[in-house]
């Protein structure tokens, strides 16, 4: 886990930019939230987004520190800069939230998502699907005579592109995990 020791609520050196330049442009931000893994904590975060009318494009959550019972929630959201600042401040207000980080602001980050795609077909389409999977470095994790399940990891755009290619080749089902993200460097 990255060292997240920035004080909540600090007006400087903080996830909260208290002097934003307001603009009406919609921005896409990836926010990492470190929370105490207690019952209902995810409902608090999701309830905040639905209750205040914020967007969630993707959300992933899992316990990352089993001894400290801490979970990391990665949220991809869109909004104007003012809304993004509000989202961060409101997240910081939730009592079991330890830290809030805007990975989009704090520096270059790596974003990865995992997806599984079931492609059903035979003949040339089946061969083409396998060939494209190879180009995208997707793995075959299940196979029958009439279908494949591919596993692919990458940035969301890469998965979108792969899914677009598979659609005419018999894409039957897709499951995506949502984005997990970390800051680059130390």
């Amino acid at each position: 886990m990255s060292a997240l020791h920035i004080k909540k609520g600090a007006s400087k050196h903080s996830a909260y930019n208290l002097r934003p330049t307001f603009s009406d442009l919609q921005e896409r931000h990836t926010i990492a939230v470190l929370v105490e893994n207690e019952p209902g904590v995810l409902a608090r975060v999701i309830g905040l987004f639905s209750g205040r009318g914020y967007n969630i494009e993707s959300l992933t959550v899992a316990e990352v520190d089993h001894t400290g019972h801490l979970s990391r929630i990665t949220i991809v959201t869109t909004g104007t800069p003012q809304v993004i600042e509000q989202i961060k401040a409101q997240l910081g207000r939730i009592v079991p939230v330890h830290e809030v980080h805007d990975l989009t602001v704090e520096g270059p980050s790596v974003e990865r998502e995992l997806a599984m795609l079931k492609v059903v077909g035979d003949g040339d389409k089946r061969v083409e699907a396998l060939r494209l999977a190879d180009i995208f470095r997707a793995n075959v994790v299940d196979s029958t005579l009439g279908s494949f399940v591919f596993e692919i990891t990458g940035a969301p755009e890469k998965i979108d592109a792969f899914a677009d290619l598979m659609r005419p080749l018999g894409l039957a089902e897709i499951a995506r995990t949502g984005v997990a993200a970390l800051l680059r460097g130390e």
Binding site: K8, S11, L18, A89, G92
Partner: peptide, 8 residues
């Protein structure tokens, strides 16, 4: 005292 009040 509440950072979310600022610029809301």
């Amino acid at each position: 005292i509440d950072p979310s009040s600022i610029n809301k």
